[in-house]
Design a protein around this nucleic acid. Sequence first.
DNA 1: CTGAAAGCGCTTACAG
DNA 2: CTGAAAGCGCTTACAG
Lengths: 331, 331
Amino acid sequence: MAAGRRVAISDVAARAGVSPTTVSHVLSGRRPVSEATRARVRSVMDELGWAPNEVARSLRTQRTRTIALIVPDITNPFYPSVARGLLDVVSEPGYQVLIGNTDGEPRAERDLVARMVTRSVDAMVFAGYYSKAADVAPAVAAGIPVVLMGGRKAAPGIDVLSSDDLAAGELATRYLIERGYRRIGFITGPAGDGPPADRVLGYRRALGSAPRGLIVREEFSRAGGTAGMRKLLDLAHPPRAVLCTNDMVAIGALDAVRDRGLRVPDDVAVMGFDDIEAAALVSPALTTVSGDPREQGRSVGRVLLGRLEGTAPSRPQRILFAPSVVRRDSA
Amino acid sequence: MAAGRRVAISDVAARAGVSPTTVSHVLSGRRPVSEATRARVRSVMDELGWAPNEVARSLRTQRTRTIALIVPDITNPFYPSVARGLLDVVSEPGYQVLIGNTDGEPRAERDLVARMVTRSVDAMVFAGYYSKAADVAPAVAAGIPVVLMGGRKAAPGIDVLSSDDLAAGELATRYLIERGYRRIGFITGPAGDGPPADRVLGYRRALGSAPRGLIVREEFSRAGGTAGMRKLLDLAHPPRAVLCTNDMVAIGALDAVRDRGLRVPDDVAVMGFDDIEAAALVSPALTTVSGDPREQGRSVGRVLLGRLEGTAPSRPQRILFAPSVVRRDSA
DNA sequence: CTGAAAGCGCTTACAG
DNA sequence: CTGAAAGCGCTTACAG
């Protein structure tokens, strides 16, 4: 299939009767080349169908124009959206993205980070459920700019971009309050920290007073949502609105309301977080709070591009993404 | 940040008092190295934290251990699953995947294919809504093995793997027939070819006789499904079961049934294709036909690996993926 | 069991 | 305006 040797810059040079140096310069425009020479070289390039070998170029320039994107599960719709946003901004300047899937396994994470360093990626975005600076230490040591998504704090050489879950919890709660709800329940997961805990924190903050017995802990799943909603509905004074830690849990909560022969939002309003695709498709369509993952990806791309262009070796950033309410029918 | 020059194989060699040749050989195991030397080199590698520079290695070996995955929209959940399946099989042998998003635009497609060739990817998977051999010609010309997903026919240097949509249409229809349905409707999209047309073809084939007036054409959308179902329900003899060209259309059909105060599946059974995430989450949960995208990705990976190992320069393959019914509550 | 040397295909000081 | 040469960091014939 491969018709012998690939054509190289030396072939173009020979055929055009110039040196490789000149060919390189007509390509880059980094130094003047006479009009005549330029035209001749150009036409030989076309004739031979030559394009510079990126690998050779990378070895020489020490830049690969490659960005590593390491995620726990590319199948979780949040990450493809992030990838899309990242591509939106880095494709134009010529970067490509190398994808890695870790399943959240520390071993796979270490392996992937190491391999990406070995491949001399120009930058790295590392997303994890609980990302820490230690996870990307080898990349930082190699001088590769990295942004951590979903982490808690910036560190030397590491920018951190995360959803503002506290703000999200607060926003959702205030949205409900503005619509006249006073007794608002919350179905969350097992105790712990991270995004779920922050969402509850925001809820408490918006409410001012700590709601008594209105926070229920279940699994992070549809079944968990169903169980949680049942408990809330069985209360002497059930809440008139309930916040669910994510959309999947909210969908489970919807199931429970339907099973009881009640109506959403007339009998209970239900609200989720994340805005997964299904949120718009269930019935009633779910009102939820979104962190706009594609925009997060774009933002990550911009930060990285800034680091790559080295415009001011500024101190590590921590950016929190403002959430917004996606208003639909369930609340 | 970068602490000066990266450590290279020559640094390891110097420090271990051997030649780079030997260091390379202890790494590759391609020729015997004395026990003592090997131990010394190994310990210097650890001490210096050296790992071979993949870029230099690629330039020398002419292999990048990189596979390009070019898709129309990484945000369409089918593709992340394919990506996952691909990673499942190619990660172990050390390949990484470079992702490209085309939005189905011919210009972007051409650009990406060209760039990937320039980067010397070892293999390419190109997925499009209507993939053609011409789209990947530059890769084939460069001797890069490519598999086309969603294309119609194999060609020299190109393997084609697609969902078997005809079988899917047939399977869905037979499933319904076995459950006692006789009048079966079909909501499809505007006339054309490709997967939707094949699904209808399979339906006709399973039915034997051409159903009169039970095929309805609408947009490929939720609204299209709603409109289509309304038409079907307005018939003098409405069908008792309806197949929808994809899950989104089926979800729209569900909306229409609900609006009429009818019940699924008691009054009408509804079935979709693709098994998108939302299929399991709507109510009633949608019975659908799946092409198992992750398995498709794995299969693509295996085909590519076979080509890369060059085990038998076999003729181009065309593989059709057998669909299966995902039985839930709507039919 | 080990090493010197060539070469993969570029870009970029250096020199004119 | 142009070219010769070095060098990025490896691997692999070739030689001993």
